[in-house]
Design a binder for these strands. Structure first.
Lengths: 115, 115
DNA sequence: TTTACTGCAAACCGTTTGCAGTTCC
DNA sequence: GGAACTGCAAACGGTTTGCAGTAAA
């Protein structure tokens, strides 16, 4: 569930065939401002919109196909050493794990004739 | 040192007044492909280009002015619980800390007449 | 009648691409 | 001549904005 605005538009058109892109973008922006959605902008290309579940979670990103998967945050929070913080006020953090999704791992194995 | 392509263009023009945007973009892309630069794409707007220092580091991002600061990664790597990995092959990770830079903290204090 | 909302098209920003004109071998 | 490069302008993808029209209060 990390849809691009275009995908949301396609879905919306199933119910409201006349709805325009502008309306979708405007509505998405409002929902983000209201805190109902969260923008996930961890890959090139269009932004992804994510329902704002309250549980903190991080993201696994496939470098090959740009799939995004949520992962729960493991027990300890990442932290910045005090001396490196230098007056910066930190209000939140997010971990982006990059790699290959299972499908792309499989495709990669095929493409390299390796065992 | 997290310059946008535009800023690089401006700098380049000090030495080569005729250089075009296209050339800057092309060269930046080559340097990224060669591994000399790294793209830092953690804020809205243009990508930032970072000289590829080998030490792993994370990023502190000011939500207000979009300043980016490098922070060394603290001892332990973030990790994904096995059962959440689900076949994903993880090759790297990056932590993005969001908050306010010292200048914006100061500005914020002023703007809220609070103690 | 005023307000809120819509679709549409045009504008926008950051980036890439096609093309014609160099320069160097 | 051909390869490698450049600047320029146009195109591109994703998003925002201005405007005119409509529906609702």
């Amino acid at each position: 569930m990390h849809l691009t605005a275009e995908q949301v538009h396609d879905l919306a058109r199933e119910k409201l065939p006349e709805i325009s892109r502008a309306t979708v973008y405007n509505t998405l922006n409002e929902l983000v401002a209201m805190g109902e959605l969260v923008v996930v902008d961890v890959v090139d290309g269009p932004k992804r919109y994510d329902p704002n579940v309250t549980a903190e979670h991080d993201h696994l990103v496939c470098e090959r196909c740009h799939a995004i998967r949520d992962v729960p945050r493991d027990s300890q929070q990442p932290s910045v050493p005090d001396e490196a913080r230098g007056g910066f006020l930190i209000t939140g953090s997010e971990v982006i794990y990059r790699g290959l999704c299972p499908e792309c791992v499989r495709r990669y194995r095929h493409s390299t004739r390796g065992s």
